[in-house]
Amino acid sequence: MTMTRKEFLQTAAGAIAVSAITRIASAAAEKPGPKRGVSAYSYVSDLNVNCTLEDCFAEINDLDTRNYDLGLEVLTGVVEDYPNPSDAWVKKWHDMCAKYHVKPVEFGHWIDSKLYNETGPYLSTEESYEQLVQDIKVGSKLGFTHGRTKLGVIDQPGMPEYDTLTPVRNWREIIKKALPVAEKYNFRMLPEIHAPTLLNSKILEDYIDFIQKEKTTPWFGLNIDFGVFQNITSARGRDGQPGGMPMKEGTYSKPEEIIALLPYVHCCHAKFNEINDDCECPNIPYAAVIDILKKHNWNGYLLSEYEGADKGSGGAFAAVRKQHVMLKRMLGEA
């Protein structure tokens, strides 16, 4: 799959011809406040089957990049020859980012504690650190300034915390060891706060306690997934709930619970699984959440993450477009 630069430019030239990229790249300072972006995970069911990675870039470009570059999240799996991408591929990546006006923001990566078995022993602190540093370096090479740093989860049936997504016992040691590396590479490590975890919970208390005690800001913080706010069960969503792990019946976080966390939140997943033709998301209180972010001068990217029922059957592209209409209205960009 490796392309020469000439081949790439020929391909890119064809793709670019239809795209209205008339804006001159600006060196102006980044727009403050909440900004739009997309996690290419939204398109994962189409990628490699109906479209290429470059098609995803072109699609994001078409979500209105006239005023600023849209933020981008990709997962490690899109990186050719990950974890050892070639220089040619890295060059191709940066060329695509420039051409399509997308800004690498968050690298979705994992500490695979269960690399060798399910029930332990899990990866040691040293082994976990090595995985983490490997991803910081790959992510940084691709221009990412944040990582959606997924920590391993140790809950087992019968444990008291079972199904609350308790991270591995040595997560503090792993992160502490990696802090200087994160700073050196300008890479913020952010575990994702995802359903069924609640914002008002022991796990969040532990994270905040660690962040404050170890003064990790901004190199270790939080990525909030807006699925935690889903307060109406979705009729159409996958399993009637946010994608991935569902919220427990009847439990959800209130938008105002994010306020105290904002100093430590460096990125958000704009999770959604339903969006109607009025471009409204009926089961997650987006207006209230965005309003809080604006009022509290939160600065960062909202990365669209679609997990609707039609994601596997070609629905993702239209759904993300509708969500960006919604976000533009709420952010005063419409």
Partner: peptide, 11 residues
């Protein structure tokens, strides 16, 4: 396959 961030038994 296994999944590190999903509670045990649910991989």
């Amino acid at each position: 396959h296994r999944t590190s961030y999903i509670p045990g038994g649910m991989s």
